[in-house]
Design a protein around this nucleic acid. Structure first.
Lengths: 335, 335
DNA sequence: TTGGCTATGTAAAGCGCTTTACCAACGATA
DNA sequence: TATCGTTGGTAAAGCGCTTTACATAGCCAA
């Protein structure tokens, strides 16, 4: 690899001149420019980003810390983040942490310490304060999708409550009165809000939420299946289930099938997320669509404006949408 | 951020001593070690990786260049690569290129130029020679999943031919004689090999491959649907379709449905990849499973051994597996 | 003729680290 | 006593770039 100095020597000017020329910090006469350009071409020079970063302290790169890149939701988010960042001339380094606290901390350290200008953080855990401590006071972080308590950086979320409200309304309008909710980890922002939207819709329709019909555990297929078994084993099972993620919904489908029942004939189901597979499952899943692309883009835009010294909104809520497919039907009349 | 020199000053030693101590290049008496450790703790020192990289020329990081991180196949691959790399103390930078040649080239440049020790490259395009040129002679690259013609770096592939051979055998054993194949881009390694396995199975069973029953286009859902329409609009349509990817298979399902037919009653279908959604669709898709985790891990291991100066096998083939689900049935008897 | 301006640069320091010398002090050895 | 090896370090250069401060040459106005 050729260096700046070699180019300068070849062109018969000083390294300073070449550097400033390349960074548009000097006006040179055509002849000099031509000599430099020729030298660059001849030596196939490309600047060493590491050196530049060390020198300037800027990297023109951002990091995306994500719990699990194999999860389509985060993968799509990552794709959107990349798209938007590239459009602004930024590189993106994606890391996935497996959802482990120490991995998250390491990732943030590694990223934030030295080689990126900013950080977009998504998590799906309840923080014990260590993340909050790490992120406190940083001016180059934005939180995406899920909150970290006690952190004051700009945040981009969807309107979780509105989503579950609409999902619940939809079930109620289809005639359901006995509706259960299966959600992710207790105390996670999205879970609390989705539960709140559910409660509001139920309340407005003067329906009671039965104790034991709100099951909070994990955003996983397995939990969805397990919770479904609990629900269906009860004396009087619900006629509809609101799953707080499509993964959970898949588990519900499995659980319902294992109980010898069918969706939507016996049990109606609404999911949340509208992951790519939601339209492909049997039956196609009615679910709440999150605007994944918009979330990623907005997070990048807010981060870049932060880096520019501006102050983006502390919290942005993106609208969700009810995607009606075929997993909801009127309740089965038993008598 | 504290620097090495500040730590040294605090501990009353030279920066050299601290650096060598941290890199295990010197043996210091306990007292000195304690002073340095105390200084590090007090100043919350963490080394600046950028500076270290610039100085040593090593980064303890590898890059994964992938066409589309939102594609579950590549996302799972990425997750496996990360897992294995982290286990060896390496960081991974993931970039997705959108499958555009120039983006791939830029990514390789950016990555390879300055900030990673090695590169794992996956692509899903047919190279026009530019990638090959860029990668030629490099000793720190491994190719994963798909080939680039003319490149001599170590490669990790699955046994594509064996996969489609088994898929085709399965269809034949179920009684099918009229089998069509829908594949990805002509001239892609995987496509050629999958076609070869198909041909071999057909030949062994003395079945002819009808002209017009091998459709090569793209590894996309849309192409799968379009190709299916072509197939089903013909006077005498096939009774089974071998889709060379699960994405294509999803498109086939859609196409079949749009024709008012059903799988597997009217048309049998086998996919390829066993993406997460394959088990979730209606009907659950019989497909060829690729050992995604093993692929990612092996690619990392080969890359690291390359970096260590060893010579991994030029080409490794990983075994595939037929996952029998419910998209294949004996052919519908028409007469 | 002088002073000052503009155009066209350059020298040198510094980013934070590693590494290659080198060195001083001390005890052991010949 | 001279030498040697070991222990416990240090000084300084260098990785490739940016940036601040300064320099020179030419030209114009006063």
């Amino acid at each position: 690899m050729a260096t700046l100095s070699e180019v300068a020597a070849e062109a018969g000017v000083s390294p300073t001149a070449v550097s400033r020329y390349l960074n548009h910090r000097i006006e040179l006469p055509q002849a000099t420019r031509d000599r430099i350009d020729a030298a660059i071409a001849k030596l196939d020079y490309r600047p060493n980003l590491l050196a530049r970063r060390l020198s300037t302290g800027k990297s023109e790169a951002i990091a995306l810390v994500t719990p699990d890149i194999a999860n389509p939701f985060f993968a799509e988010l990552a794709a959107a983040v990349e798209r938007q960042a590239h459009a602004s001339g930024y590189s993106v380094y994606i890391t996935s942490t497996g959802g482990h606290a120490d991995a998250e901390i390491n990732a943030i350290r590694r990223m934030a310490d030295s080689h990126v200008d900013g950080l977009i953080m998504t998590t799906n855990r309840v923080d014990d304060g260590s993340l909050a401590g790490l992120l406190a006071g940083r001016e180059n972080v934005v939180l995406l999708d899920e909150d970290i308590a006690g952190v004051t950086v700009p945040r981009v979320f969807v309107d979780n409550a509105e989503g579950s409200y609409r999902a619940t309304r939809h079930l109620i309008e289809m005639g359901h009165r006995s509706i259960a909710l299966i959600g992710g980890p207790h105390r996670l922002l999205s879970v609390g809000e989705r539960l709140a939207g559910f409660s509001r819709a139920m309340g407005e329709a003067s329906l009671t939420i039965r104790p034991g019909w709100v099951l909070l555990g994990e955003y996983t297929r397995d939990y969805g299946a397990a919770a479904t078994h609990v629900l269906l084993d009860a004396a009087e099972p619900p006629t509809a289930i609101l799953a707080c993620s499509d993964y959970i919904a898949i588990g519900v489908m499995q659980g319902v099938r294992e109980h010898g029942l069918s969706i939507p004939k016996d049990i109606s189901l609404v999911g949340f997320d509208d992951m790519a597979f939601a339209a492909l499952v049997d039956p196609p899943l009615t679910t709440i669509r999150q605007p994944v692309a918009a979330m990623g883009e907005l997070a990048v835009r807010h981060l870049l404006s932060l880096l520019d010294g501006h102050v983006p909104p502390a919290e942005t809520r993106l609208p969700v949408e009810l995607m009606i497919r075929q997993s909801v039907a009127p309740p089965f009349k038993q008598g």
